[in-house]
Design a protein around this nucleic acid. Structure first.
Lengths: 124, 124
DNA sequence: TTGACATACAACCAGATGGTTGTAGGTTTG
DNA sequence: CAAACCTACAACCATCTGGTTGTATGTCAA
């Protein structure tokens, strides 16, 4: 709804739309890593990896904490879940469509309620 | 794992990293819309909307079917679910981390099993 | 057939993106 | 202190992105 939500969604999806950043997210979700430890894993400059980490931090997918001279990055699972919930909302929109289609079918064949749609909404 | 999967993930997340495209996805998940019907909803040229639709189609988030002179676009909920499953996989990585932390805590305090982590994995 | 509508696509442009190198500051170690 | 290391950030560059306009093709209706 709000403008800020769309900004946040833009930032989250964009942050995840790069395989290096997705890999970084995987690593920092599994445990804390310093920026240089992350940089050592990829065939690119330290500065490039640092920029990827900055993009992920701005999107809220990870946070950093200082320990001595190192900056330890840690993944934020809540941000991941918030993205997942956006997709769930989209799936809900689709379910509404199928429900409407089923209603039409039911209106056309009032005496024979069919098993609706083969890939229809799960009733769990 | 495979290179193609990463390409596909890039395309999917990138396609969703634009609010106009997310809005189009919402509409075509709710029901079929012609490209010009979609274009009428946004304050930009027809060609711009058409390019957004093309990006979504290449990513597999929608498909088109011709009907007369119109091209009807329809959302693909399976593509949305595949994105959701990528996020679920990420959340699984995080759960592994928490499990490891809990194991360490248990090893340190073998006689007093605490309720582990306040935001820990759900046991449902 | 002619005209109006729906789509596709090319060419172009400003700004963002993802990489590079270089410079500078803070922290640990010898 | 000096050297080594970790991080931050600016400047630069090629390419991609998201928008534009213009042109071409296909389809429906009069």
């Amino acid at each position: 709804m709000a403008e800020d939500d769309e900004d946040r969604a833009d930032a989250l999806f964009h942050a995840l739309a790069d395989r290096t950043r997705r890999d970084i997210v995987r690593r920092v979700l599994a445990g804390e890593h310093s920026v240089s430890a992350l940089a050592a894993k990829y065939d690119m400059s330290f500065a490039a990896v640092q920029k990827h980490v900055a993009v992920l931090e701005k999107a809220g997918l990870l946070s950093k904490r200082r320990q001595g001279r190192e900056q330890l990055a840690s993944g934020d699972v809540d941000a991941v879940r918030s993205v997942a919930s956006m997709l769930t909302e989209l799936e809900g929109v689709w379910r509404g469509r199928i429900a409407r289609i089923d209603a039409l079918i039911a209106a056309d064949h009032p005496t024979q309620p069919l098993p609706s749609h083969p890939d229809g909404p799960r009733k769990d």
